[in-house]
């Protein structure tokens, strides 16, 4: 076939080849490592930051003022100590330095958790876009980025194993669904376990506690603990800042986003209403508190999980609800 002809047609003719012409297939894992090293897509660009300019300046100025005051006070304290006796001054300055170091360590840890959490959302978004994609062999960068985010956690080993098992004929959507289904089995199980345990604890506590206001505190405390351990399940470092952010997102989703899901879930709750009616009022209250806890937990799982759940594989409130009811009835 002449060169002209080749250019005119937009398809490549079928050919049979000699087995010697084959090259070795590039190892996908090696390619993956290279991709991580090149370090693309690492900058987090947060566009909403621009809007918050004014309040930012205000916060910065007040923080600066507070810092100045603290420094001045610390200096005055230390110098007062030295005026009394040199040993008192040394003790005070040691105390201040150690407090400072601790604060810095805590702040770094908290920031790490927050950064990890913040990086989950774009990852999830890209993954859900890719699930609908029919392209082929474009999923590697996303998986690499995920592996990089989870580096150093217990999730990496099963994930890597799962990525190695990905079949060569899967297209991108199938790759993501496969990894989502099989790469986080252990973490999902742990998280769901924690949620059902915690929702039972809350339910039982509320059922036996005699004070209403105390109930709220107890439930809040249990939920706070639960969020922490769920984040830990999915490789997010525990820390006050991350947890605060998680709680805010969870509450936001519960209040605004998850309304339709709530309606669906509630149909299940209504179904068992006749069963709840047979329980005492106290246990009923406990059950309510337990269900709220479970809902918060599931929402947190959705936010912390590196990949979104595959359709049909989502953990449902009704699953937790039935076991909760069973346990409550057996214990009380």
């Amino acid at each position: 076939m002449s060169g002209d002809e080749k250019q005119r047609q937009d398809w490549q003719p079928a050919i049979e080849l000699n087995p010697e012409q084959l090259r070795d297939l590039p190892n996908t894992e090696e390619a993956a490592v290279e991709q991580v090293d090149s370090g693309e897509d690492k900058k987090d660009t947060d566009k909403s930051e621009k809007n918050a300019g004014l309040s930012r300046i205000f916060v910065a100025i007040s923080a600066l003022l507070v810092k100045l005051i603290i420094i001045v006070e610390c200096y005055r304290l230390v110098s007062w100590g030295y005026q009394q006796h040199w040993s008192l001054g040394t003790l005070l300055s040691l105390l201040i330095v150690s407090v400072l170091v601790m604060a810095i360590v805590l702040a770094l840890r908290a920031l790490k958790g927050m950064r990890q959490l913040r990086r989950r959302q774009p990852l999830q978004q890209r993954a859900s876009q890719m699930i609908a994609s029919n392209q082929y062999k474009q999923a590697a960068p996303l998986l690499d980025e995920m592996a990089e985010q989870l580096k150093g956690t217990a999730l990496v080993v099963p994930l890597q194993q799962c990525i190695n098992e990905v079949d060569s004929v899967y297209r991108d959507g199938e790759v993501i669904r496969f990894v989502s289904n099989h790469g986080f089995v252990e973490a999902d199980r742990k998280a769901i376990d924690k949620i059902s345990r915690c929702s039972f604890d809350t339910a039982a506590l509320v059922a036996v506690s005699p004070f209403a206001s105390f109930d709220i505190l107890l439930a809040a405390w249990r939920n706070w603990r639960m969020l922490n351990s769920i984040a830990d399940c999915y490789g997010i470092a525990p820390g006050i800042a991350g947890q605060w952010r998680l709680l805010r997102q969870v509450l936001h989703n519960l209040a605004f986003v998850g309304l339709s899901e709530l309606a669906i879930d509630n149909s299940g709750t209504l179904l068992t209403g006749s069963v709840t009616g047979q329980l005492t009022a106290r246990i009923g209250q406990g059950l309510g508190a337990g269900l709220v806890t479970a809902r918060i937990g599931l929402e947190a799982v959705k936010l912390c999980r590196p990949l979104p759940f595959d359709e049909g594989n989502k953990p449902k409130l009704s699953q937790i609800q039935s076991s909760l009811l069973k346990e409550l009835k057996s214990k009380f």
Partner: peptide, 9 residues
């Protein structure tokens, strides 16, 4: 017999 083939698009 072993075959290696580009079957066309």
């Amino acid at each position: 017999e072993p075959v290696v083939l580009f079957p066309g698009e």
